[in-house]
């Protein structure tokens, strides 16, 4: 018995891996492996989609439409991120509790704001979009708020965690030099998280462009909306044109964020 227990504890990780593999294999049996698994016309459609990939629609009207939609998508993303950054800045600082003076204060305030941040990011931006479209109709505000609120929740949480992870020596040193809580924020916490938070915001900005494209599926205009329209018309060549614009947008933002990061290396 003792030997068996020893075996269990010693090989705990390997046993767990084995168990997970078995569960995966078992899950394969619940799939019905017959002809119904694939759509009968699927092969043809796949071929059409790949052919369109090689010959996207580059006619001037489509290019202009793609450019306009890309612009709308980018504008929604930028506006949404601006709201998110403002929310994250204030809520993140309050949620981190770095300004709290007493223990009770720390638990009450940071708990409350961490709760709010959790609530806003628990709901996906697409759901927020539905809610806002239902409430204020198909206006750009719906898209901007739907992006800004959950992204503010995510950014705020990361910001608060970064503030909490800062080494305490430099902050203590500022305090002994006579700095108040707010001054330690200005001269300690914020400069210390600056590089990390900027690089994370840039990554989130990239995500927000994709989200903004997806969100326009609910009818808010932008690349996603055009992709949806073209898909309904089975115009795969147009779909690819729009997708290439989306990819280009994401790649450009990534290049910009790399440029920024290089300049900020500590």
């Amino acid at each position: 018995m003792g030997k068996f227990l020893y075996f269990l504890t010693y090989y705990k990780k390997s046993l767990l891996t084995l168990l997970l593999i078995l569960i995966f294999v078992w899950s394969l049996f619940s799939v019905q492996w017959n002809a119904d698994l694939l759509h009968p016309g699927g092969g043809v459609t796949t071929k059409q989609i790949f052919q369109a990939l090689l010959a996207p629609d580059l006619s001037p009207e489509i290019l202009i439409l793609a450019l306009e939609s890309t612009w709308i998508t980018l504008v929604y993303a930028v506006a949404g991120m601006s709201i998110a950054i403002i929310l994250a800045f204030f809520f993140g600082i309050l949620a981190s509790g770095v300004l709290s003076t007493s223990r009770f204060n720390l638990f009450a305030v940071s708990g409350f704001f961490r709760g709010i941040l959790g609530f806003t990011r628990a709901i996906h931006e697409l759901v927020w979009a539905w809610l806002f479209v239902a409430a204020i109709g198909l206006s750009p505000f719906a898209a901007v708020f739907a992006l800004g609120i959950p992204y503010g929740g995510i950014l705020g949480k990361i910001f608060a965690d970064m503030l909490n992870d800062i080494p305490e020596e430099p902050i203590k040193a500022l305090e002994t030099a006579g700095a108040s809580k707010l001054q330690t924020l200005l001269y300690g916490y914020l400069p210390l998280v600056r590089a990390n938070i900027i690089s994370y915001v840039m990554y989130r900005f990239e995500c927000s462009v994709r989200s903004s494209a997806i969100m326009s599926f609910v009818g808010l205009g932008g690349l996603g909306y055009q992709i949806q329209l073209s898909l309904s018309d089975l115009q795969y060549d147009e779909v690819w044109t729009f997708l290439f614009f989306l990819i280009a947008l994401v790649v450009l933002i990534d290049a910009w964020s790399n440029l920024l990061r290089k300049r900020m290396v500590l």
Binding site: P170, A173, T176, Y187, R194
Partner: peptide, 22 residues
């Protein structure tokens, strides 16, 4: 009060005391 104490007493440790990114 920190700003009263800081006029009387100053502390220096190892160089981890500085804000490297400023």
């Amino acid at each position: 009060k920190r700003n009263i104490r800081s006029r009387k007493i100053g502390v220096i440790r190892q160089q981890f005391d500085l804000i490297a990114s400023l």
